[in-house]
Amino acid sequence: MENPVALLTLKILFLSCIAVGGFIATVPELNRFAVQVQGWMSDGTFATLFALSQASPGPNLIIATLVGWEVAGFAGAVLATAATCLPTLVIAYQAMRLRAHHGRARWFLLVERAILPIAVGLILATAILLTASASGAAPPKLALTALTAVFLLATRRSPLVPLAIAAVLGGAGWV
């Protein structure tokens, strides 16, 4: 198969079928495939795309959209995005139905009670990693993270408020 769009779509389809823990977990493999195996772009380009996908709004699977966009423009972006979503759409829908039917079964409640703390632990671990990588241990940035968290815990107002304040402070060079 020579068509890059088809190759990329199939690769992403496969990756998102095994991407337990989020699409972010497959990024190293996507990098290897696009840069080393297929030679579609340089390592630097991929790194820039990844940084952009992290800084942009939206779920982080958007990295696949950018890779598709880089490889084959509009068609590439659309197909790559669809390929990331399709497996989850099918699998999660079935899981939801399973939950609706067996949600009161003892084994299901047991599973639910077992996996909830693991999921919460993973969230807190992500919070630690993100805080560390975003702040680089700079006190003003750590304070920004802490104040945002406090704002969200103390109020029910839109998270956009602390983000907007942070953007203004950062743009002015105060943080």
Binding site: Q54, A127, T131, L142, L152, I165, A166, G171
Partner: peptide, 11 residues
Amino acid sequence: ALASAAAGLIV
């Protein structure tokens, strides 16, 4: 700065 504040959302 946005990245730092966004980390706060997850915290």
